[in-house]
Amino acid sequence: MQRTANKLSADLSGWLLSAPIALVLAVFLLAPIAMIVIVSFWGATEYSIYPDFQFENYEFLLGSSVTYRVFLNTFKYAAATWAITLVVGFIVAYFLAFHVRSLKWQVALFLLCTIPFWTSNIIRMISWIPFLGRNGLANSLLLSTGVVDEPVEWLLFSDFSVILAFVHLYTLFMIVPIFNTMIRIDKSLIEAAVDAGASGLQTVWHVVIPLAKPGIMIGTIFVVTLVMGDFITVRFMSGSQSANMGRMIQNDIGLLQYPSASATAVILLVTVLLVIGILLRFVDIRSEL
């Protein structure tokens, strides 16, 4: 009798303990997503939306070749940004974790990495524009050193500038989690590898990378979701000439086409979730944290 009561109250307290977060998630995450899904089936006139159950939004979206091109573009940006931020982030984190010996300097240098984050995202991005422009600093430098005879046009308003801005904005999101896992690698494992005759690269490949995998995966999730959901970087850095899914949604919202924007958002959400699902197949983050 006593035992059942205990069990009951344990059950109850479990429910009660999880209630606040469940409530917050329900109100601020599930409800909005549910709304977006519902509205994606609604109809729209030029100035209003009306409840309906139609597939027109999805039909138009999935029936247009432009959507696929935009999708491809979105993935292209995500893949390129991911690859570059991974390499840069890994090297920086590796340097911080293994080459800088004193904790004081590790912290100091790590804070240095965050300095760009003291200004707004948009300002950091826009400051590239005068730098990369036809008459910008980069081109003046190239021209004056004789590397090129004519200003290089593809520096700005191109895929190059979009990816450059993404890398600049999001590398820290890769550094932090990788650094975090690396710093917790037991140094004696590295010593053991060296004692067993492994070269530097072999140590990195066979010891450090496998142990840093959860960090890499978390960084990957950050970067991929940030890039895939972005719209403003693509707009500014491509001079509005390229599109990704975020920009399609933004355009629709600007033109009061909420149902069509919702449909695009649903497709984007599903895609991002699929990508994350696949990523999580590679590494079980929970068990390795």
Partner: peptide, 25 residues
């Protein structure tokens, strides 16, 4: 024309149009 590279950029706000022109882009 766009695919042939006619356009440098598109602009949406007043400031963007000023900057595009003033910078010689």
């Amino acid at each position: 024309a766009k695919q042939n590279g006619q356009f440098r950029a598109f602009w949406k706000t007043f400031d963007e149009s000023v900057n595009l022109m003033a910078s010689g882009e």
